[in-house]
Amino acid sequence: MFSRTLSRVKKYPVVYFLFKLFLFAVLIFMLDYGIGSLLRHFYFTQKSGFQYLTTYSMEQTEAKLLVFGSSRANHHYIPDTLEKYSNSSCYNVGRNGASVFYHLAVLKSILKRYTPEAIILDFTRIELEERASSYERMAALLPYYKDHPEIRSIIELRSKYERIKLLSEIYPYNSTIFSIIVGNMTFNKKRKEDFKGYVPLKTTMDSLGKGVLKEEKEAGLDSLKVNAYREFLLLCKESNIKLTVVCSPYAYKAEGSGVSLLTGQKIAKENGIEFLNYSEDSKFINNFNLFTDKNHLNYKGAEIFSQIIGERLTK
């Protein structure tokens, strides 16, 4: 019956083509759904690694003091040290390569569950500059698109076709398969001690790194980032969270006009929020022993800086 129908359809090449295309689409849909569901399951069963830290930040932490930011936040603020000063629980939700879009999305997810008492938002020198990588790195949020409607509008900023791409069940887990495997292994949990989100950097800047202290060329302001930053500040204000925006230390002095930093300070001031600028602090600038690379403090530097911030917060 089927083969007779098929041979009859074969006489009409367009119909035959569309029929085969339909069969192929069904096969792809089934594979996509099956593999995507499997990846989803194992993504959320991870017990270590940076993806686990994001899930924990968005869905589990109930710490009273939270640290938001990029890799600089992740490596610069030690929750144990901050806890000593603030006498409250602390968690570092910073993530490598995260931009203000990521910070806003995580904050929105957290506010759906509970309201922290205080937040430190680490602000980089290029935080509000226009950079394509900021949108690419938002891929870290894709696995949460389905269950977190509050962050969908942020994820959709990635591209106008993002919704279409997200029809695929595999797409949110694109390029994550190796991390998912490693994150589910017990050896990785043993290997990577959990310091409440903080990831220490153990190396010190070598002579090769010192030779290249040039910053990336300054780009213009990204209006979408400026809006996201404003929204972050307003959300904290409306939720009565004590927010402090901090630009943590760099190993070198900035070049360019510093338009991003100035705008960040201006918006914070407009909203009555404290902005602490340690980017060129004399304790850290050119003190390469305290850095792993030009942008990141090592654990020695992070210890000193966390104490400074802890003292400042108690004032």
């Binding site: 394509a132 690419e136 791409k165 595999i170 797409y171 887990y173 694109n174």
Partner: peptide, 8 residues
């Protein structure tokens, strides 16, 4: 392609 492609 979906698993390993670089879409950005």
């Amino acid at each position: 392609l979906l698993l390993m492609g670089v879409f950005d």
